[in-house]
Amino acid sequence: MTYRLNLIGIGTGNPDHVTFQAAKALNNADLILIPRKGDSKADLADLRRQILAQVLTRDVTLAEFDYPVRDDSGDYAEGVNAWHDALAAVWAETIARHPAAQEVALLVWGDPSLYDSTLRIAARLGAETRVVPGLTSIQVLTAAHGITLNEIGRAVVITTGRQLREAWPAGADTAVIMLDGKCSFQHLDPKGISIWWGAYVGMKEELLIAGPLAEVGAQIIETRARARADHGWIMDIYLLRKDLLIT
């Protein structure tokens, strides 16, 4: 039987981030996929279950699957593509065990359209796919710090730590860094740069630090390491902005 795959953005872990549209889609599902990423990240699967416990108003079948491990030993792009192939295969195998399911749902942190590979993996299945947008960690970060994403008439670049380690994004005064497990801001000359950092943004564990990069960079590195050790996982994001002289 054919099925439709619903990719549902659920925000950054706070059940209050789940929109009415997302809740409706989850309650309309016949099957909800729950990824497991090993014992060290068991809290992430638990968090999905907690969100579902608050959102679901009817019994829906949950199917858990283990995440394949990405091979980082070779070429980056080739490793990612192979990993996505493996993920698509696991999704397909898990869904195939529930042949009666017509509406299949997968909860996605943030929004499926932004710095997330769920859509690319879903394309490998060849099934009809629907996206339900969600709050992004960028929105929650800027709200938590009470700042705007951009300066007037200025460009913003959203990128990764790997790219930041190569160079500051060309043509932008503001950079939002996602998927950075190495605190890549420490490779920059901090003079004239401010940072707004957040971990577990929007959750009860939320941590926020902001200020001149030269003054708070070391504090962020220390705080991040301690939080990751305490929780076994961390999701964080930060915004960097070059200081501008306004005339």
Results as ranks from 00 to 15, higher is better:
172 A>Y: 09
173 D>C: 15
142 T>R: 12
135 L>P: 00
244 L>I: 11
25 A>R: 15
26 L>D: 14
38 G>H: 10
206 E>V: 02
106 L>N: 11
21 Q>Y: 05
224 R>Y: 02
106 L>E: 07
70 R>W: 00
233 W>G: 02
207 L>W: 10
199 A>G: 14
13 G>W: 04
229 A>Q: 14
141 L>G: 13
207 L>F: 07
86 A>Y: 10
38 G>S: 09
11 G>I: 01
41 K>W: 11
133 P>I: 09
218 A>Q: 15
54 Q>W: 03
223 T>Q: 10
88 A>N: 06
199 A>P: 11
67 Y>W: 10
103 E>N: 15
228 R>G: 05
218 A>M: 13
205 E>H: 09
184 S>P: 13
182 K>V: 13
165 R>D: 05
124 R>L: 01
77 A>E: 04
50 Q>F: 11
80 V>W: 07
184 S>Q: 10
27 N>P: 10
88 A>D: 05
16 D>M: 08
133 P>H: 07
114 L>I: 14
16 D>Q: 07
227 A>G: 14
4 R>T: 14
8 I>L: 00
197 W>F: 04
213 L>W: 08
71 D>L: 04
192 G>T: 11
202 G>I: 13
179 L>G: 04
243 D>I: 14
126 G>T: 00
133 P>L: 03
136 T>K: 04
153 G>C: 04
93 E>Q: 08
112 P>L: 10
138 I>E: 03
130 R>M: 12
74 G>A: 03
21 Q>R: 15
197 W>G: 07
54 Q>G: 15
206 E>C: 03
9 G>H: 03
181 G>K: 08
116 D>S: 09
74 G>F: 00
144 A>M: 04
219 Q>K: 15
84 H>Y: 06
187 H>V: 13
12 T>M: 05
43 D>L: 09
56 L>A: 06
195 I>C: 15
123 A>F: 08
28 N>I: 04
68 P>S: 10
107 L>A: 08
184 S>L: 05
56 L>D: 03
180 D>S: 08
153 G>P: 06
230 D>S: 05
22 A>K: 03
115 Y>N: 02
39 D>Y: 02
71 D>Y: 06
9 G>R: 00
90 V>N: 04
183 C>K: 08
51 I>L: 04
65 F>M: 12
83 W>Y: 11
28 N>Y: 01
3 Y>T: 05
116 D>V: 01
231 H>T: 04
65 F>C: 13
10 I>P: 01
94 T>S: 05
124 R>H: 02
233 W>K: 00
210 A>V: 06
167 A>F: 09
155 A>R: 01
221 I>D: 13
151 E>W: 01
64 E>L: 08
140 V>S: 01
61 T>Y: 06
214 A>V: 12
80 V>D: 10
61 T>N: 13
133 P>G: 06
241 R>I: 07
21 Q>I: 07
150 N>Y: 07
49 R>Q: 06
146 G>D: 04
173 D>E: 11
30 D>C: 11
7 L>G: 03
102 Q>R: 15
77 A>P: 15
106 L>K: 04
219 Q>I: 11
92 A>K: 14
1 M>K: 12
151 E>G: 07
125 L>S: 06
139 Q>W: 09
171 G>V: 11
45 A>G: 13
237 I>K: 05
127 A>C: 02
166 E>I: 06
240 L>C: 12
60 V>I: 03
232 G>F: 03
217 G>N: 14
119 L>M: 15
154 R>E: 15
13 G>N: 08
35 P>W: 01
173 D>Y: 09
66 D>R: 05
52 L>H: 02
104 V>G: 13
